[in-house]
């Protein structure tokens, strides 16, 4: 019924084989490709940043005025806070507590974002040559951003906490209720594996628990927006509003352990 020439069949088989090899080799192509693209991506990121500054001039101007007021208020609070830190440190020394070293951070600029809607990731302009390794945590001054999933020589890829592939062991700062925070691809996060009657309320603060060694303890993740019951009725979940605006992130800090 169907007559296929032997030559055509061989050509088809060779093409399929080559294509399969190519598709499997894509992770290997990432490092050289991203190194070449680093320069044009940097230029486009600069243009995007400058264009944004011009387009949103009025909004930024108003925000600046509000932020100036907030800075004065926070300076005052920081002063009090510093006093408390010193007091805490003195008391810890008296009690012979082991001093925890502060986080070592490396600043990096976001030069690219995920091209599709099925994942949340960003590419930064620092890589293995800057001491960045796979599995390191990415944060901003506000809180947790994600973790490094690929580190090339001059660039790295960070999976954001809004990606469903990520799982962060977290606790409620008030009640110490534990759960697992993961992304939903939307703007919010979901905290799952909560008991049937969890001690968690709207506006509670969610931080990293430190149980998962990948993330240092106490990093701010976000605030509880909604608490609900899973479809099975056996456990509950909480919708978390992340403290960092991950859709428009420009700079991150990588925590060097």
């Amino acid at each position: 019924m169907f007559k296929i020439k032997k030559k055509n069949l061989i050509n088809l088989a060779v093409s399929v084989l080559l294509l399969t090899l190519l598709l499997s080799a894509i992770p290997v192509l990432r490092a050289p490709f991203l190194s070449v693209l680093k320069f044009p991506l940097n230029i486009l990121t600069f243009i995007r940043s400058e264009a944004g500054a011009l387009i949103f001039y009025h909004r930024n101007f108003r925000q600046n005025e509000i932020l100036k007021g907030e800075v004065d208020f926070l300076r005052n609070k920081l002063n009090t806070h510093n006093e408390l830190i010193l007091e805490n440190s003195r008391l810890k020394q008296i009690l012979s507590f082991k001093q925890k070293s502060p986080l070592r951070l490396r600043a990096a600029r976001v030069i690219g974002q995920s091209p599709d809607n099925w994942s949340s990731s960003v590419i930064i302009d620092k890589g293995e040559s800057n001491g960045i390794r796979r599995g390191m945590t990415a944060i901003t001054f506000l809180g947790l951003v994600g973790k490094v999933i690929e580190a090339q020589e001059f660039t790295s890829k960070i999976m954001l906490i809004t990606d469903p592939n990520i799982g962060v062991s977290a606790i409620n700062q008030r009640s110490r209720q534990e759960g697992l925070v993961s992304g939903t691809l939307g703007t919010n996060l979901i905290m799952r594996y909560l008991p049937e009657e969890p001690d968690i309320k709207v506006n509670d603060t969610i931080i990293t628990s430190g149980l998962n060694t990948a993330y240092p303890k106490g990093l701010l993740i976000g605030y509880v927006a909604v608490v609900g019951r899973e479809f099975s009725g056996l456990s509950s979940y909480a919708i978390i509003k992340p403290v960092v605006n991950l859709s428009d992130i420009e700079e991150v800090f990588i925590v060097i352990p």
Binding site: L22, L23, L29, F33, G112, S114, I123, N165
Partner: peptide, 20 residues
């Protein structure tokens, strides 16, 4: 497809295959 897959997460070039 290759361009897109390089920036995506994942070990296999699904976009390359589908684009073709």
């Amino acid at each position: 497809g290759i361009f897109k897959d390089i920036f995506c997460i994942g070990a296999f070039g699904i976009n390359t295959a589908l684009f073709l």
